[in-house]
Simulated assay, not measured.
Amino acid sequence: MIAGGPCRSGDDDKCGNGDCPTVYATPEPGMLAIQGYDVTHPTPKGESVVLIPEDILKEAARARGWL
């Protein structure tokens, strides 16, 4: 896990369910696995589009040394 995951406190639970969107490292170079919100958008078979809060992406970028 790079960023996100279980919320740290009641005030941190922006998702309202105790488990916020999460960015995960994968064994494949340059690839991140994203847990997020389902959206209605047509995608090719085996693909999906998810929304995650911008601050989670920024946290992941900092953790990877990109910012």
Rank of each mutant, 00 (worst) to 15 (best):
T43F: 08
A25F: 05
T22Y: 01
P53E: 05
T26P: 01
D55G: 11
A63G: 01
P44L: 14
V23W: 00
G10N: 13
E59K: 05
D55I: 05
L32I: 10
A3P: 02
T22P: 06
C15S: 10
G10T: 15
A3D: 00
G36S: 08
V49T: 05
C7V: 15
A25R: 10
E54P: 08
A63P: 09
G65H: 04
C15I: 07
G46P: 07
C7R: 11
G5C: 02
L67K: 03
K58Y: 00
A25Y: 06
R62L: 11
G4L: 04
P53T: 12
E59V: 06
T22Q: 15
C7I: 12
M1V: 07
K45V: 14
T22R: 09
R64Y: 08
L57A: 00
E47G: 07
H41R: 14
D13S: 02
E47F: 11
A60R: 06
M31C: 14
E28M: 07
T43W: 12
Y24V: 08
A63R: 05
P27R: 09
G16Y: 06
R64C: 01
P27F: 01
K14M: 14
L51M: 09
D38I: 14
D55R: 15
G18Y: 03
I52C: 08
V39F: 02
T40W: 08
E47Q: 12
G16S: 06
I2K: 00
P6I: 03
D55K: 14
K58M: 00
A25H: 09
D38V: 15
P21V: 01
A3S: 02
P42Y: 12
G16H: 01
R64A: 01
Y37D: 15
A60W: 08
G18C: 06
A33S: 14
W66M: 09
H41T: 09
G4S: 03
I52Q: 04
I52S: 13
L32H: 02
Q35E: 12
Q35L: 11
P27G: 12
D55W: 12
P42R: 10
V39N: 05
D19G: 13
Y37M: 11
Q35P: 06
K45Y: 14
E28Y: 01
S48T: 10
G10P: 08
P53A: 12
A25E: 15
G30E: 13
V39A: 06
G30L: 14
I34H: 00
P6C: 11
Y37S: 10
L57K: 00
P29V: 10
K45H: 15
V39P: 06
T22V: 12
G16F: 05
P44N: 06
M31D: 08
T22D: 04
P53C: 10
H41V: 03
V23D: 02
G5L: 04
